[in-house]
């Protein structure tokens, strides 16, 4: 495998990892706020904070890893995306900053506050919307290259049906993934009230998720037909994704095996995400950057791959330790520790 292919695969895996852990986190923020408004917070908020407290910083690192790695393996992306994404990127940073710090203030500080809760809930939906812009732009048609640099065509972006369908898909997916995980987690904690509430949410958000996926497909065929055709070539990936979706909804509806159901949800997104990504290649930014044209030199490529392997050897045991302490330690989950 060439460095560029290794590089993009690694980065895509990390982006996928971020998609899952961040969705859980973003959605949980929204549910916590919603539950408070509808006076159901006594049911789920304890559960949410027990899971989130030890892991929120780790979630953030997934994201940092992705964008630092992207610029490392493909320095040209810094130029094109950096130049064009100043405004949406800055807004996303500010939202992330408010969310992360206010979560800590609320959770480790001494007082519960409605304002913190609101910011925490609202940013959970705005951040995915802002971040998904980067993927939208990568489809091409939203950037113009002129003599004095590249710039974003904001008007086109705001009026494109494709761009809005991606935003919609991002938001509903967040709620769907998050509720599926929290159902599993509540079940593990033997908290039946919370489980039932979350289970209702998954079932509720499952249909918008699949509808949004379809509309995105259709909008894509209008916006970037080449990418759409390549996705059709990979139809089996999306077929498997839908099969996992049906499996997950079935299990949750039947109140069976919530752990497996969440794995199905992860698989559903895995296949869809990788199908989308594979069909996107060779472009990293249509039509300006391809894998080949954007990749860094061999020396740096090799150094980064070695660094990555060494890093994983350090991280995987540590992550397993963390998961064993908090996610798989039944006493901790149940709140006895």
């Amino acid at each position: 495998m060439s460095y560029e292919l290794i590089g993009i695969t690694v980065l895509w895996i990390f982006l996928y990892g971020y998609l899952i852990v961040a969705s859980i986190d973003f959605g949980a923020g929204f549910f916590a706020y919603y539950a408070k408004q509808t006076k159901q917070d006594h049911i789920i908020n304890k559960l949410i904070s027990r899971y989130l407290s030890p892991v929120w910083e780790v979630t953030n690192v997934f994201f940092v890893f992705f964008f630092v790695g992207l610029v490392g393996f493909f320095p040209d992306t810094a130029y094109y995306y950096g130049q064009t994404l100043l405004v949406p990127g800055s807004i996303a940073i500010i939202l992330l900053a408010i969310r992360g710090s206010f979560y800590a203030f609320e959770n480790y500080g001494s007082k519960q506050s409605n304002v913190y809760m609101f910011l925490y809930g609202a940013t959970g939906l705005f951040i995915p919307a802002a971040l998904s812009t980067a993927l939208t732009i990568s489809e091409g048609g939203f950037i113009e290259e002129t003599a004095d640099g590249v710039r974003l065509l904001t008007g086109e972006l705001l009026t494109s049906p494709y761009s809005w369908s991606v935003v919609f898909l991002a938001i509903v997916s967040v709620l769907y993934i998050s509720s599926a995980f929290l159902t599993f987690y509540a079940n593990r904690a033997n908290d039946m009230d919370a489980r039932e509430l979350m289970r209702k949410y998954v079932l509720f958000w499952s249909s918008p998720t699949i509808i949004a996926s379809l509309t995105t497909f259709i909008a894509m065929s209008q916006h970037n037909n080449e990418h759409f055709e390549k996705m059709l070539d990979l139809w089996w990936m999306f077929g498997i994704s839908v099969a996992f979706f049906l499996g997950a909804v079935f299990l949750i509806y039947q109140k069976k095996n919530f752990g497996l159901a969440f794995i199905f949800v992860m698989m559903q997104f895995f296949f869809a995400f990788f199908g989308y990504g594979a069909a996107h290649l060779p472009y990293l930014l249509t039509p300006y950057i391809t894998l080949e044209s954007g990749v860094t030199n061999d020396a740096m490529g090799l150094a980064l791959v070695i660094a990555f392997i060494a890093g994983l050897l350090l991280l995987i045991p540590s992550l397993i330790l963390l998961l064993r302490m908090f996610l798989f330690d039944a006493d901790y989950v149940k709140g006895k520790k």
């Binding site: 630092v68 490392g72 320095p75 810094a78 860094t296 660094a307 991280l315 540590s318």
Partner: peptide
């Protein structure tokens, strides 16, 4: 970043591992 990234992205990349490491054990 487009130019310097070609030479100096290694430590930036390694830094994210240090963050990971710190974040996990801090939790």
């Amino acid at each position: 970043m487009q130019i310097a990234g070609k030479v100096i992205s290694l430590p930036l990349f390694l830094e994210t591992f240090a963050f990971f490491f710190e974040a996990i054990f801090l939790g």
